[in-house]
Simulated scan of single mutants.
Amino acid sequence: MNWLLLLEQVLNGFQLGILLFLLAAGLTLVFGIMDLVNLAHGSLYMMGAYFCATFTGWTDSFLLGALLAIPATFILGILVEVIALRNLYARDHLDQVLATFGLILFFNEFVRLVWGPIGLDIPLPAFLNSTVEVIPGVPYPTYRVAIILIGFFVAGLLYAIVSKTRMGMLIRAGASNREMIGALGINIKLLFTLVFGLGAALAALAGLMAGPILSVEIGMGDGILILTLVVIVIGGIGSIKGAFIAAIIVGLIDTVGRSFLPEILKLMVAEDSAATAAPAISSMLIYILMALVLAVRPQGLFPPKGVGR
């Protein structure tokens, strides 16, 4: 086995897992507290990337573009919640799915009208567009290392907010019994709006960090949303800890599986067949894991306190 390749793919798996966590953290809070199935969460991820590309072009600085894109998407999330989603809380999940799917179509066409059908690039500054030795003799892209470090920092900060602050206490209470905190005089509408805005900001952070690696294009959030939903199911709806651990697991399975399954399959089938089947089997492993978790622990690996008990 090529141990250097394994190390590189493990790091790539952590990087993918971090992006999935940033998406899943906001979505799992929205689902866990507001009981809202928001399929348009991937569109906020896309809007964060487009905002960053635009602000980077205006300021000629990726860092300034990123700092401006996060509050812009936070405000956009608040507007979406107030204008489009607030009336859906009392509706069943099918209505929510249909409405938020409509938002996906709206945002895709909005981006097409404003930015055009051709994707955008986000240029990196020179200090991020380089390599760093993770261990002696093993270079790895500096920007991908930065994604991993920022992701761990945000995960720790989010955990501290949810666990140690008054707003975090309200978030946890809302995830357990939102009717009760409303009866205690808490402004539940304001709480929902802030949680949705926080989820939008986290989605934007994931989108702007993925932008320089992937193409910033229409519909870029649609595919990753599916993996994000899998992460939420595995980790436990409403659980930040569960979202983080499940995201890392899914990222590692997807990345390492795609790299090493072809070599394993070559021992059993022809090379062309192995190369074709490996990506599909790697994706299947994620859904098989989700099915096993649902069978053994339907509430997820790390549900919020009071869930499933």
Rank of each mutant, 00 (worst) to 15 (best):
L7E: 11
N12F: 10
A24L: 01
G32Y: 03
M34I: 12
V37M: 13
N38S: 09
N38Y: 10
Y45P: 05
Y50T: 13
F55G: 03
S61H: 00
L63V: 13
L64T: 06
L67Y: 10
L68N: 08
V80Y: 01
A84E: 05
A84Q: 03
R86T: 06
N87V: 02
L88I: 07
Q96T: 09
V97G: 05
L98K: 00
T100D: 09
G102H: 10
I104K: 05
N108V: 07
L113N: 11
L113T: 10
G116E: 03
P117M: 03
L120G: 02
D121L: 12
P125S: 06
P125V: 07
F127V: 10
I135A: 11
P139W: 15
Y140Q: 01
V145N: 08
L149M: 13
L149T: 14
L158T: 05
I161D: 07
K164E: 13
I171D: 00
A175T: 14
L184P: 00
L184D: 01
N187P: 03
K189I: 02
K189L: 06
L191A: 06
L191R: 00
L194T: 08
L194R: 04
V195I: 14
G197H: 06
A200K: 04
I213L: 15
L225I: 13
L229Q: 08
G251D: 07
L252I: 14
A274G: 04
A274K: 11
T276I: 14
I288H: 10
L292K: 00
V296T: 14
R297H: 06
K305Q: 15
G306N: 11
